[in-house]
Amino acid sequence: MIRSENLFKYYGGKRALGPVSFEIGEGESVGFLGLNGAGKTTALRILACDLRPSGGTVSIGDVDAVARPQELKTRIGFLPEHPPLYSDMTVADYLRFVGRLRGVSRSAIERQVQRTAEITQIADVAGELIRHLSHGYRQRVGVAQAILHEPALLILDEPTRGLDPVQIVEMRSMLRDLKSEHTVLISSHILTEISETCDRLLVLGDGAIIASGTEAELSARPMKSQRFRVGVALPDDGGAEGAARCVADVEAVEDVSEGAEEDGALVFEVTASRDARGAAVRALVEGGFDVVFLERARRELEGIFLELVQGKGGDDAAA
């Protein structure tokens, strides 16, 4: 559905994005992940036809988004970082205005407003002035204006920004529901938000795509450090320190966590510069400890992300 080739954007003499190339299929939900200033918002604004790129091409469907943006605008819903709300309007009036502006027919407008209010759970504040709404509701109204005209492509720039934990959970649930009807692009620097709502991630760093793939694909990438968990039968008093020392003395082991009791075993998380599982088990057995389990630690996205943006694991890949 979206194809971008060598897309880049300069603000004055400063490169904010690119060159980046990627493809996004219809019905996919893709997360743009990156630290602040990585180029996420710039990329999304270009895709939303709010900003023109300095170079490269981007097409949505078969339409060139740079040359013919007007043809695309009814097919795109965009929620910028700060929801574009008119505080002097009521929620319902605002949504009617947005609907008319986006070409929703007069006969369908009330139905669409009602439908959208139900999806985003703002029906109870439909008659209130936007200036009186809480941040959470304002964000929901922002999502509502983006989906009101049933766009094929929904672009959400940091939709959970500034929300409290309960609102974040509710927003994630809403975003998961939206995936079934739209191609969804979401940007965030919060990994859990992206991984829980998107099928695929594009990791941006310094304006370029440094990795892409599903969470599983990113987790499977070879990384410089290896982490595993090893559990030993609960030792006698003072045995925990001895077990930790046994593992720490193994060559290549960089860090050993304090032992934590888990299902009747004492579990250590170990970080090593290479695969040191065999050596660690040998050391523990020779030290008189009964090893009851060994597993590779689940590669947390945070770790992968940090390695990628710090330039340790990037492949300059495009999807």
């Binding site: 709010d50 605008k73 009814t74 574009p84 709300l85 008119y86």
Partner: peptide, 11 residues
Amino acid sequence: EGTLVLLSTSP
């Protein structure tokens, strides 16, 4: 107010 984007991304 950040609302110009609503108009600029509209048809």
